[in-house]
């Protein structure tokens, strides 16, 4: 089913690594997107094993005006691994939608992230003219890059980067304290499903409205 115009303007596709090492950045990214008033959409959100992943990705790309692509895994996480090609592939699909699609797809906007500023040029030189932003593996920088891009791309007023960071830190304290209270370890937070993590964020936001 096609996304409604309202959903299309609000939904933001996140194309990023799903490994444990990236998880702190992914959690921070999701928090920032929600704090800015957008709805994060991610391939992990669906529970339907019958749906082919490529089909799911196509649907997400088609239904989101905004997207964030993190190419950090152009180098393997461990020396014995191979680099991951899913992220550049999905970036290509997204850009294809924008340039070869029609109607609202032509208004699609994306942010391309990498860990280091110019490293991608060695493996993906076709996008060398694009403005790629580097987060240096630092969640505070990631917040700032995402917030600043959304401010311009969506043309709306947003909370400052420092305010989002402040609230993300307080949110992490609330999650950690709750898990401690229930005698779960901090590692248990890492294995929460992404949809569960989003549920925690939404509940927290309901208690602590953002200072827009």
């Amino acid at each position: 089913m096609a996304a409604t115009p309202r959903d299309f303007e609000r939904d933001l596709f996140i194309n990023c690594p799903f490994d444990t090492a990236y998880l702190p950045l992914l959690q921070c990214l999701i928090f920032t997107v929600l704090e800015c008033g957008f709805r994060p959409r991610i391939a992990l959100e669906g529970a339907d094993s019958g749906q082919v992943r490529f089909q799911k990705i196509q649907e997400l790309i088609r239904s989101c005006r905004f997207s964030i692509h993190d190419l950090s895994r152009i180098e393997p996480l461990h020396s014995e691994d191979l680099p991951r090609f899913n992220m550049p592939f999905e970036l290509g699909l997204d850009l294809g939608g924008r340039y070869f699609g029609n109607g609202r797809l032509t208004r699609k906007q994306c942010l391309i992230l990498e860990r280091e500023r110019y490293r991608y040029q060695k493996v993906l030189s076709d996008i060398a003219g694009n403005d790629i932003r580097a987060h240096e593996g630092d969640p505070a920088i990631l917040v700032l890059e995402v917030r600043n891009w959304l401010r311009v791309a969506a043309g709306r007023s947003l909370p400052s980067g420092s305010s989002i960071w402040e609230r993300f830190s307080a949110f992490k304290d609330s999650v950690g304290a709750t898990f401690h209270l229930r005698s779960y370890s901090s590692r248990d937070i890492e294995v929460l499903e992404i949809v569960e993590y989003m549920e925690f964020i939404r509940n927290w936001q309901a208690n602590q409205p953002a200072p827009l």
């Binding site: 999650v175 709750t178 898990f179 209270l181 602590q208």
Partner: peptide, 11 residues
């Protein structure tokens, strides 16, 4: 249950 506790801690 975790969410119920979480709401209390967050407030």
């Amino acid at each position: 249950e975790l969410l119920t506790d979480f709401r209390k801690v967050a407030a």
